[in-house]
Structures are given as structure tokens and as C-alpha cells.
Design a protein around this nucleic acid. Structure first.
Length: 561
RNA sequence: GCGCCAGUAGCUCAGCUGGAUAGAGCAUCUGCCUUCUAAGCAGAGGGUCGGGGGUUCGAGUCCCUCCUGGCGCGCCA
């Protein structure tokens, strides 16, 4: 639970604060900002406080910086030395011992290294994928799954009480269409000449479902009045089970599978609509009930306000109404503090409406957050593959998992920011080339384990931090690796605050790279017993940190490759 | 038309939310395996940060404007 970077920044900040006070510059209220300089020559941390104070204090930044340095009391702190540089930066160099502290932290925290507590145990939901159970999951769902599951792990590491949820859209028009498609295929299979609905699901999976149904139940239901309902129930049950199996293969463990149909059955959809009516946020037009959405978000003054239908003129509530009820359930019934929905960017219009609706029922819209992902474009043979669920030509998630494995899919789909467009080159993804960075990272872990195992076999085990002369770790590569190790808790913090799993993927690559560099530059198995022990501790620290990182990503950490 | 996302090396992308000389990977060249895993490492070349204005000590980052691509603006979900 210790973030050394945060801790160090805090110490430096208080030194600066006292210095500013002693110099009589506190009245200007300049914020104290501390950052890690990009350039190694600029110390371990730096501040721009002198430049911030220059204007209000009517002085020049360099002179101010010198003055401030004179006031700094660094005795007994982590600070080794302070100097001014450039246009007026103040650079801090830390004491050498500080560099090794991370190994002590890792020794204490083990494979949980990286956990921080910025969440304070707040109840947080991450809802992701949430597709129609009308067919197999496709590649587009893969990105949502990888991002959502990894984001949930990050928030867990950051100290939030996280729930992973899958919203099963087993109601509404798409299900109606699903039913019509099943029924048509059923009749065709038993030899009745019926036309297949134009807007039905044309996929082979629909036909297969009906083949299975007939094989299991025969055709005794051919004239039953509730045939379609029976077929839908059969199809949904089978498809949802299939989705659950796929998620298992994907390595995603949902806490809750929430059925949209339950919201209708329990009366929550009606209740949500009633609440909006009672609060005066609706009106009737053309026989439908409308929500005054336009009251809740700004549009251009001269733009025509756009409201949304809650209940159609035929009395059936819209998906929007169901979704309001669903989110009301999340916040009010189940008491989540924050809800994060991972949606495709094509749902963007819906996010604004949802926030407005939350506002209407008295929930702070800020508690509802969205991660919008640009849709995945598939490239095969250098050409864009059209993804269409209806024509059934989409590449399924199962195929992708079979081809390149869950590890690669999860890693690959978390390498880019969700908001960026993602071209998934199937030829590359399907071929097991070493281009895939997941191997690079896993290889680093396997190498670490290999060293430990070999030395263990020779009777040399990993020493305790207190038994090691850390100062022996002094090469550039060792220092770089130690610095990379201490960044992990900060990366978790940043990723959690910005909902950005790709930061952790990149961190994993950076950490692996720092290790590979160290491995090639510095031999662990050396004659000098003291140095051997120090390096062994370093390797074990790196192993634990990398294992923890891979756990957040949901990628396995192989001990040999 | 309005809104959202994106535009950084030949390609794919980072850039710590305004800091110091813009960084990785792939690709292209050059080196490194009789010693802990070469699925690895070291080095080299490669840039009008889409264009143009502005804000300030300082802009890839903030504001305005234009250009290009993707998506959204349904009694679909």
C-alpha cells in the first residue's frame, strides 16, 4: 500500500512549503508542483515554484530559485542535494539509500505490490460488454472485455470495492427479431415453406440452434400457440450459457449477470417512468411519453431541442426507459457510489441522454462515467473486413481466443487507449509471431524465474532485504530497473484516475525492457557473494512486481517458456 | 448542419494533464550466443507534432479557425 513516489513528493513539498514561508513568499499562494524530470541530468525531482512566483513577486526566476534554496531545510529528509537549473527550475537529488527502499516495500507486499488506497473502499461498478444474447460474441466484444476487466482490476488495486457486471439485453426489439428468425428457421427445417424475415438474423448459428432444438425436443411444438416464446427461451438459455463459457475462456469472472428482462418483470421500468412523470420531467405527444431530455444538457440556443421517447405510442417502453431503470437500480437499489459503463463509441449519443436522465431522478450525473471505445476495424489481407452480426460473417470471439489465446487478446486489446481507433490485423494476430509484445513481457518473467530456480538448485536462496548490502547495486542498468520498479504504484494510481488500462500494459513492457537490459549488462551469478545476493534480491523484486503487473492485466506469468 | 473521438518518425503508438534537447516498438542498416533462456541486448539513421493564428517566462499539451478520417444525432439497441 506504499507509493514511494507519492511519499517522496510529499516530503519534498513540505520542504518547499517551509522554504517559501521563510522567504516571505507564502502570500502569493503559488501551487507547489513536483515532477520527475525527463532528463536524468536534472535530478530525481524538480519544481517550477520559482517560475510561478517570479511574476507576482516581481523578481526573476533564477534569483528567486537561489533565494529559496537558501531557505530549504533538507537535514534529515530524503533530499541529498538541491540546485537551480535552466530558466529557474529547482532540481532535487535524492539520497542513494532511497533508491533501494523499493525492494523493502516489495518484500513486505509481495505479489500485492502496487496496491494503493485512493479508492477508500468506495462501491464501484464496471459494466462491460453487455451484448445482445442473440448470437455468438464477436471480435468487437473482445476489446470491451479486455478493457473492462483490466480497468476493474486496476480499480481494485487502487482500493475501490469493485463489481464486474454483464448486462444481458434479453428484452426488446432485438429479441423480437431473434424470435422471428428462430421461428422461420424452425419451420424451414421441418419442411414448411416460409419466408425468412428481411431484417432477421441470417447467421448460421440461428439455424444450428433450431437443429439442436429439433434434435432435443422433436417437432411436437410445431403448432403450439406459444412456439416462438419457447424457441426464444431455448435460444437465450443456450446463447447465454455459451457467452458465459466464452467469458470463462477469456479469463473474465463476472460478479453479476444482470438480465434486462428482470427489470421489466419486477416493474422497475414502470416505476422509473412513473418517477419521471411524477417529477414533471415528461409530456405526452403523438400518444407517446417523452422525457424532457433537452432540459438537462445544453444545446445551441437556436437548435431545436431534442427530447426522447420513454414509452412508445403502442405502450411498450423504449430501451432508453429500461436503461434508466437499470441505472436507477445500480445507484438507488444497490447503492453503488460510482458506475462506469464501457461502451462502444457508437453509443455516444446515449451517454448524454443517460446523464441527463440521472440528473432528472436526482442522481449526480458525475457518478455515472463512461469509457467509450472506438470500434475495432478488422484488417485481413490488407483490406477492411466488414463486421455484421446480422449476416453472421463476423469473426467470433471464440475463434480469436482459439487462434491467439486469451493472454495475447487481453494484452493486445489493452495496448492502445480506448478512444483511439484500432485496426486489428487478423493476419498478424492469428499468426503466432514474436511481434506480439505479450511474449516479450512473459519471457522476462520466465527469465527471472529461471535464474532464481538455477541458484536455488545450487543452494543460494533469495536473501532478506536486511541481509543485503544494497549499495553494491550501482550500475546504470540496476538503477534504471530499481527506478522502474518504484513507478508501479504510481502507474496504478494514474491508470485508475484516468480509466486508462493501456498505461499498465505499457508499464509491463517498460518493466520487462528494463529487466532485459539489466540481464544482458549485469550477470547475476558472479563470484562475489555479496554482489550475487544483492542482485538476487533485485531479480526477485522485479519478479514480484512483474507478476503483480501481469495479474492486473489478467495475463499469465509463465515460469518457463 | 450540430456534437464526440482521432491526426506526433516509413508503419503502429507514448508523451506524466503547461516544463528543460519530442520518445518507444516494428521496419531498414551495424554489432553481441564455449558462461544465468538470442522469444534477448547494444548502436545508427529517420520529425514542418495536420495547416494557420493566439494566450505566457515556456505550447505536442490550453483557446480560436480551417483541413482530413471515424462515429453519433430514430416511437433501434
Amino acid at each position: 500500500m506504499i507509493n514511494l513516489i507519492e511519499k517522496t513528493k510529499g516530503e519534498i513539498a513540505s520542504v518547499i512549503k517551509r522554504g517559501v514561508e521563510k522567504a516571505g513568499l507564502a502570500e502569493f499562494g503559488a501551487p507547489i508542483e513536483i515532477e520527475k524530470p525527463r532528463d536524468e541530468g536534472h535530478g530525481d525531482f524538480s519544481t517550477n515554484i520559482a517560475m510561478r512566483l517570479a511574476k507576482p513577486a516581481k523578481s526573476n526566476p533564477r534569483a528567486l530559485a537561489e533565494k529559496l534554496i537558501g531557505e530549504f531545510e533538507t537535514e534529515g529528509t530524503v533530499i541529498e542535494s538541491v540546485e537551480t537549473a535552466g530558466p529557474g527550475f529547482i532540481n532535487f537529488t535524492l539520497k542513494p539509500e532511497r533508491l533501494y527502499e523499493v525492494m523493502k516495500v516489495i518484500e513486505d507486499e509481495g505479489e500485492d505490490y502496487g496496491r494503493v488506497n485512493i479508492g477508500g473502499g468506495k462501491k464501484t461498478m464496471v459494466e462491460f460488454i453487455s451484448s445482445n444474447p442473440t448470437g455468438p460474441m464477436h471480435v468487437g466484444n473482445a476489446r470491451g472485455g479486455a478493457i473492462g476487466d483490466c480497468l476493474a482490476s486496476i480499480l481494485d488495486y487502487a482500493g475501490y470495492d469493485v463489481t464486474r457486471e454483464f448486462y444481458v439485453n434479453d428484452a426488446g426489439n432485438q429479441i423480437e427479431r431473434f424470435g422471428m428468425s428462430l421461428e422461420a428457421r424452425y419451420y424451414q427445417l421441418i419442411g414448411r415453406d416460409v419466408e425468412f424475415p428481411e431484417d432477421g438474423y441470417h447467421g448460421e448459428d440461428i439455424t444450428q440452434l433450431m437443429r439442436d432444438y429439433i434434435a432435443e425436443c422433436g417437432d411436437a411444438d410445431r403448432d403450439a400457440p406459444d412456439l416462438k416464446e419457447k424457441l426464444v427461451a431455448y435460444g437465450l438459455e443456450k446463447n447465454i450459457r455459451c457467452i458465459k463459457d466464452t467469458m470463462k475462456d477469456f479469463g473474465i469472472d463476472y460478479d453479476v449477470w444482470f438480465l434486462e428482462s428482470d427489470l421489466h418483470k419486477s416493474g422497475e421500468v414502470k416505476a422509473a417512468v412513473k418517477e419521471l412523470i411524477d417529477k414533471g420531467w415528461t409530456y405526452e405527444k403523438d400518444g407517446a411519453i417523452w422525457l424532457k431530455s433537452s432540459e438537462f444538457y445544453c444545446t445551441k440556443d437556436d437548435e431545436e431541442a431534442k427530447d426522447d421517447v420513454l414509452v412508445r405510442s403502442n405502450g411498450i417502453p423504449t430501451y432508453f426507459a429500461a436503461d434508466i431503470a437499470y441505472h436507477r437500480n445500480k445507484f438507488v437499489t444497490r447503492g453503488f457510489d460510482t458506475v462506469i459503463d464501457v461502451w462502444g463509441a457508437d453509443h455516444h449519443g446515449h451517454t448524454i441522454r443517460m446523464k441527463g436522465a440521472m440528473d432528472a431522478i436526482g442522481i449526480d450525473p458525475e457518478r455515472l462515467r463512461f469509457v467509450l471505445m472506438q470500434l475495432v476495424r478488422l484488417i485481413r489481407g490488407g483490406e477492411v473486413v466488414k463486421v455484421s452480426k446480422r449476416t453472421g460473417k463476423a469473426v467470433t470471439l471464440n475463434e480469436l481466443l482459439d487462434d491467439i489465446g486469451a493472454d495475447a487478446v487481453r494484452f493486445f486489446f489493452n495496448m492502445r487507449q480506448p478512444a483511439s481507433h484500432f485496426d486489428c490485423d487478423l493476419d498478424l494476430a492469428v499468426s503466432k509471431t514474436s511481434d506480439n509484445p505479450v511474449y516479450y513481457v512473459q519471457y522476462a518473467h520466465a527469465r527471472m524465474c529461471s535464474i532464481l530456480k538455477m541458484l536455488e538448485a545450487e543452494g543460494v536462496s533469495v536473501p532478506k532485504f536486511s541481509e543485503v548490502n544494497c549499495a553494491l547495486l550501482a550500475t546504470a542498468q540496476e538503477k534504471a530497473l530499481l527506478k522502474k520498479l518504484e513507478e508501479f504504484p504510481q502507474e496504478i494510481t494514474d491508470a485508475a484516475l484516468s480509466y486508462e488500462p493501456s498505461k499498465i500494459t505499457r508499464y509491463a513492457i517498460d518493466l520487462a525492457s528494463a529487466f532485459h537490459t539489466f540481464y544482458n549488462a549485469d550477470r547475476v551469478k558472479v563470484d562475489d557473494k555479496e554482489l550475487l545476493r544483492a542482485r538476487l534480491l533485485l531479480v526477485n523484486s522485479a519478479r514480484l512486481a512483474l507478476k503483480s503487473t501481469l495479474r492486473v492485466l489478467g495475463v499469465t506469468a509463465p515460469e518457463k517458456m
